[in-house]
Design a protein around this nucleic acid. Sequence first.
DNA 1: GCAAGAATCTCATAATGCGGGAATCTTGCA
DNA 2: TGCAAGATTCCCGCATTATGAGATTCTTGC
Lengths: 256, 256
Amino acid sequence: MSGFDRYDKVLRLFTAQKSTWTVAEISGELGTTSSTTYRTVRELVAAGLLESTVASSFRLGPAFLEYEQLMRVTDPLVRSGAVFLETLVEQLDVPCSSFLARLYGEKVMCVAEARTPNMTLQTSYRRGRPMPILRGATSKAILATLATRPRERLVHKLADIGPEGVAELFAELQSIRKSRLSVTFGEVDTGAIGIAAPIENKPLGINASLSVVLRAEDFSEPVKARVFSLLSTNAKLIENFMDDAQSELERRSGAA
Amino acid sequence: MSGFDRYDKVLRLFTAQKSTWTVAEISGELGTTSSTTYRTVRELVAAGLLESTVASSFRLGPAFLEYEQLMRVTDPLVRSGAVFLETLVEQLDVPCSSFLARLYGEKVMCVAEARTPNMTLQTSYRRGRPMPILRGATSKAILATLATRPRERLVHKLADIGPEGVAELFAELQSIRKSRLSVTFGEVDTGAIGIAAPIENKPLGINASLSVVLRAEDFSEPVKARVFSLLSTNAKLIENFMDDAQSELERRSGAA
DNA sequence: GCAAGAATCTCATAATGCGGGAATCTTGCA
DNA sequence: TGCAAGATTCCCGCATTATGAGATTCTTGC
């Protein structure tokens, strides 16, 4: 194990299913001696990424909240979410959730969300939760606008749907690229409809999507028209907002 | 530089004031060669803690959102906030903000917050933001319930108020320990009143506080009575909630 | 197609992490 | 209070890894 891996391996053990680990468990899982594990854990505790709790076990530490707050203030996409999502779901005027999601390794991650108070449907997408990249409107809108190379690599690596399924998926992605809209029915959550518009910012290296999830029975023609229109315009607004945020940043650092 | 420090030093460069760094800037700041810096940054990017953006610079990466989401689901104190704070501010029925804060190194950090819709006063406390430990009701409630050793160490290390000021502070902390309530006037934000109740869970190693901030002019006698009573009861409720969460955890891991 | 900068690679050297086991510190319990 | 049983840190020789300087390759804008 080398470099940062040694720390990453430890941190990745902490999951929703098992959120506290003892040194003995970590050692067992990673095959290291307790001497080494203690040293590694101690360093992570010092940095605030872990903290000790009862029964000589450890949990994730407060530094993550600190960095998350920092991203909330500085990350262009996260900030866009805070600015646009609330208004978007209000204007949609139908029970729904809205998400800003982005590529994260070989997954898709939601970085901001908003929902109408009356949205009862539980959605799998949630801020900070990695989701599969090949299923759902949110993911497909992102996948569609990736550069050809990484797109094909991801599809071929992750698709387990046979060659005809892959061809079909590529065709769908092409059509999303054209219409700049992705619509899926119950691919992630049954009874839910997902509609997404891609968001790109090549210089910032951002591939993302703006999406709305609502109940199938609410998806009437007028709602559909409203969703399509608001998604398209808001996606553009967010692209512009990120450009502006970037210029602002450059202006400030240039002046400093 | 040794161990995790090398990564921590890089990550700590990213602040609200300067949220993107080039390799050259990092090298300059840390006194390392670009060769070394590139390697370090590459590892952090691979782990999702950094990501590259325009102009060969880097910003904080999405892994922080992932870990934050994990804490939101698993951390006993954070979860307590989600359960109790909304109801608390509703019942207070006066424009206010409410916080759950905890010790974080030599600072205090808010880990959950809620505010009434009509709360106009801007408060310095914000989720994920480290705050000084010697000023404000929120901080003093935590400081008061620390074990004697660390409490005295922190006060003597951080207080720049002369020996009589220190004595005064210790007296105030003692009285907070007795009454289990801390009240301060404009110590952090002018025009604001802070009221806090300590929250302890020795086995979990948690030293925290539940606090409310409101405008000085709203702090009438009936409001005061309501705040005191609700803070005390909710602080106890949260202590119990964390005990229960812990038992639940042990039960589950015992059953697994 | 070219140049300027960004990013990676190579390699000898210096520094650091590693495991095993001893030593020390906590903590629960009698 | 004293005494185990863990939990945690310390120590040290050895193996591994990081480091810096510079060459090399890759990008990107013009």
